[in-house]
Design a protein around this nucleic acid. Sequence first.
DNA 1: GCAATTTGTTGCGGGGTCAAACATATGACG
DNA 2: CGTCATATGTTTGACCCCGCAACAAATTGC
Lengths: 413, 413
Amino acid sequence: MNRTQITAGRDAHHRPKGVAADELRRHNLAAVVESLHLHGPVSRSELTATTGLNRSTIADLIGELTNLGLVEEGPAVAPSGPGRPSPMVRTRPQGAVVLSIELSVDSVAVATVGLGGYVYEQVRVPRPRGESAAETVEVVAGLSGELIEGLPADAILTGVGVGVAGVTRRSDGFVPLAPNLGWRNVALGEMLASALGLSDPVLVANEADLGALAEYRRGVGAGVPHLIYISGEAGIGAGIIHDGKPMLGAAGYAGEAGHTLINPDGHLCRCGATGCWETEAGEAALARLAGIPSSVTGLGLIDTILARANDGDQKTLDALAEIGRWLGLGIGNLINVFNPQLVVLGGFYHPLFPFLEKAVFKGARLGALDAPGDIADITAGGLGPDAPLIGAAELAISEVIADPAGHTRARSG
Amino acid sequence: MNRTQITAGRDAHHRPKGVAADELRRHNLAAVVESLHLHGPVSRSELTATTGLNRSTIADLIGELTNLGLVEEGPAVAPSGPGRPSPMVRTRPQGAVVLSIELSVDSVAVATVGLGGYVYEQVRVPRPRGESAAETVEVVAGLSGELIEGLPADAILTGVGVGVAGVTRRSDGFVPLAPNLGWRNVALGEMLASALGLSDPVLVANEADLGALAEYRRGVGAGVPHLIYISGEAGIGAGIIHDGKPMLGAAGYAGEAGHTLINPDGHLCRCGATGCWETEAGEAALARLAGIPSSVTGLGLIDTILARANDGDQKTLDALAEIGRWLGLGIGNLINVFNPQLVVLGGFYHPLFPFLEKAVFKGARLGALDAPGDIADITAGGLGPDAPLIGAAELAISEVIADPAGHTRARSG
DNA sequence: GCAATTTGTTGCGGGGTCAAACATATGACG
DNA sequence: CGTCATATGTTTGACCCCGCAACAAATTGC
């Protein structure tokens, strides 16, 4: 038995911060806006119930939000029982509109989205593999300009969200590595900001992370606080929502699951290693197993596979089962490590899911620890190919939600 | 181009909560106590600087904490320059003492720890493999009684923290599965609560999760908000700190990395699968490769290995290199997926680290994506074998920190 | 011993929420 | 069709919490 004072670690620079009263107001405004943004119009009295705040406080908050142009009150709906009807509160989409951009391997998409999730307009155009960052940015800037032109006169643009198929640094929108786009060390945030000519901040994030955010907020995973989104494009990426918040890691590179080792005796990967998850379960593996030349990629490949599978072509079905098996094994690993409630499949796994499903479940069960009754569900995404685009909008809108007063005040001054 | 309203998901039951003024006070009290608990005594003026709160507010907070018996002020230390000296503030250990318990495969340990990390007493006794939960609980309850007897008269016991080498459900301390202890469906929390005869809540958590917490709060990872702790006992477990908070997953089973697939052509695992991480890098693999009979386990095995390695026995060194290689490959996978700043090795990897280090780094580099300059560091733990025990204390003390006033009020009424 | 400096202390004011009283709008009932 | 019960918006006052400013106290340096 000993008796000692444990000394605190040397490099301990985390110091808890105090909080003043204005922080409280900001939090409560955010709670109201978030509730309306995610769950749509509700009556005032429902808001008091869900937030736990007092009637008078809610009235005050809604008053401020109305003045900010973010919220408006409609006529009361007839309640079920007696009592004074409570007016419906809803977001005012034009009060905060964001531009959302998705840069995928085979296409780029742009949308204008208002608070509450109102999509004003949306375009997607193909992108040739190998196009440079500068070229892609130019295309996107052109589309963006058109969409912004098309907005109503009273719409207030408050931010830009960008999803890109690569490793991103969120602090400044720098993309050190996007192997499937063929980009390296691209200052994407800056490039887009100057090409768009907007004063608004440009928030850049990884495509899979945004897919996860979108499916969590508006897709099959709505309200499921622990989920993983698997994005199958040229490579494999994962986006993780943990306890309702995006899990990004120290530098924002979390979820780079494509190059985790799963089969030391497997195939050689472009990354130099052998048996990465994406060499066994990715697009290239699918083409290889299905006997389709590697020159056929992206949508062309998936359409071919899908057509053959629907025709009952055995070689294709076998290839899909093998891909599904490896996909499932990798998912089992992620389930063990993250303990999610739900795994959502996006990218090209989405259209192929009916043919993958059985093998995926089998593979995942094999790997996942048998904590009884707690196996996560696996499903195809609810938003289809637009998940990352919607996620990019949500990313930008989150800034408004986090500080409704501050955000709107900043652009009037 | 289309024009639609995205509908929010059907099952969306997350509703943001509002916050009142008392929540603010609680937060600020917690900030002060946490700062003192983690970083030791500081002057009042330093507290105003680190928390960002006003002088008068800090005075008020310290006054309340002093009345609660959680904090005391000492004489002022001579400052460097001119000006009125500021009194030192420190935790009052006896104001909140917790009992911490660790149930490992080969030993059990008990300690009494006061606020600020003051260890009153600490015992560790061997545990025979195969001992039942009831037997282990009885042993632990006996030790706990002695340690509680030995506390000063004015010490106030506020909680119990338990670390156990198995899958745990935090809500009620239930252990559905602890394969390395040979336990299944054990209501450990309830058993300990009644055996100890204390009214305090018993918080049960996974050993690796607590190791991570301990190393983050008081070990080599102090202040490093993104770290992974790898616990090598009979199996392998991982505890994850993400953004300064334990990452537990939906049901608290996150980090069960031992049974992730890493080598489909590897050895058969007790879990029924083939090529799990722990069959390639765990204790059993070490014994197998070093040519030591499987009857030798735990400390006996490690001591033997260590002795032979120190003698320069080539077979043992080769075995360690092979273990280290697989350990590194698995760590590389975790790095890709979590993007931590630091990986801390605990359990039997701790004493063996000098012999594993080279192979571990090599293996981890192989798997980890080459985002330049962002490779996580890998190191042996700073707290040695007691990390989970310290973590269990931190877990229980966290309850006091989170709500200093509420917690102490509860036990006077 | 006096000025400069830093910090504790005290009193006041403002922001934010809550509780209670009052006003208003609806349904139910005779 | 009027009254009552019910639910909810509105207004007012109170309380809590924090920041600010003025003042008091304790130390250094000259």
